[in-house]
Design a protein around this nucleic acid. Structure first.
Length: 295
DNA sequence: AAAATGGTCAACCGCCCTAGG
DNA sequence: GCCTAGGGCGGTTGACCATTT
């Protein structure tokens, strides 16, 4: 194990933070902001490395942190977001105000994962364990078998508002979605395998827009893209992607942008504006899987 | 009562990315 | 283009506490 060079050279303190250290860090950042983290410990009078200070601030001292247990709504949201984003804890945390990535990661590993397993849901793919792999399913409880009839008929299983409730929706296409990640401009190379009702798309290259939602209102995979109008409008607006961008996408359906506030009236899924564009097309399959309901 | 086991969570580790020189 | 430092992230560890044996 290699220790951070800064900690090693200067024999800095490690381990749990004392209340005195917390107070020093809190006082310093409250007065001056953190600025350059590497200089914070020295200026705040702490024998810690900058990374340690940063972590302590983000995960514990930040004033906007929400304390206490996660609500069931938060837990459900985490499951939904995980289905879309995978283990991108920081992105998941960005959609749960007052919660940290560390906190969510801990919750997932210690609690949610087990709950899903107990329900016969694979916590990685969010699909029934019976569908994921027979060999890994041998020791699972009896719950997993309850999905067999659906899964044998090309159904996905969608999680609903509670861990105990599940419903199925039918797969529309058998084609899989693949994305060439080597391109900065992601594109669809085959059709999406399910008919989603909600989608997020990354913006065209060099776009600094604050697009927060893209909604497919009339999912018709046979029609061509028809997009108009602009970005940054808080009202529901049709959106114009560049021709180049659209031509590289086989996503064949009208797409619309909708504001966060409008969106909230339809679905309790508060994507933050600044992070929403981090969702890439490769996530669409899982997103569609996760949000099968019609708005 | 003591030991073993399990769960939770704060903190660290190591890797990656980016900016600046 | 290369090197370095800073920052961010996900994975992992280990201390602490509660529960079980």
């Amino acid at each position: 194990m290699k220790r951070h060079s800064c900690c090693y050279k200067q024999k800095l303190r490690k381990g749990l933070w004392s209340p005195e250290e917390d107070e020093k860090l809190l006082n310093y950042i409250t007065k001056h902001g953190h600025g350059c983290w590497s200089s914070v410990p020295k200026l705040a009078g702490l024998e810690r490395c900058g990374k340690s200070c940063r972590l302590r601030w983000i995960n514990y001292l930040r004033p906007d942190l929400k304390r206490g247990a996660f609500s069931s709504e938060e837990q459900n949201l985490i499951v939904e977001l995980h289905a879309v984003l995978g283990n991108r804890w920081s992105q998941i945390a960005a959609r749960l105000p007052g919660r940290t990535d560390n906190e969510i990661k801990n919750l997932w590993n210690s609690c949610i994962k087990k709950k899903l397993m107990k329900k016969g849901i694979d916590p990685i793919t969010h699909r029934p364990l019976s569908e994921v792999g027979k060999e890994t399913n041998k020791t699972d409880n009896n719950n997993s078998t309850s999905f067999s009839s659906e899964t044998n008929q090309d159904f996905f299983v969608k999680q609903t508002s509670d861990f105990s409730e599940y419903s199925a929706f039918q797969k529309q296409e058998s084609n899989s979605l693949s994305v060439d990640n080597s391109l900065s401009k992601a594109r669809f190379e085959t059709q999406v395998c399910v008919k989603p009702s909600i989608l997020l798309l990354p913006p065209p290259d060099n776009s600094s827009s604050t697009i927060d939602h893209v909604k497919v209102t009339e999912p018709n995979w046979e029609t061509n893209c028809r997009t108009t109008s602009h970005l940054n409008n808080p009202c529901m607006e049709e959106m114009k992607w560049s021709d180049e961008y659209l031509n590289e996408s086989l996503f064949s359906s009208p797409v619309y942008v909708k504001s966060e506030t409008d969106f909230n009236s339809n679905i309790a899924f508060p994507w933050s504006q600044s992070q929403a564009c981090d969702v890439f097309p490769k996530d669409l399959q899982r997103m569609a899987f996760s949000f099968g309901q019609t708005l």
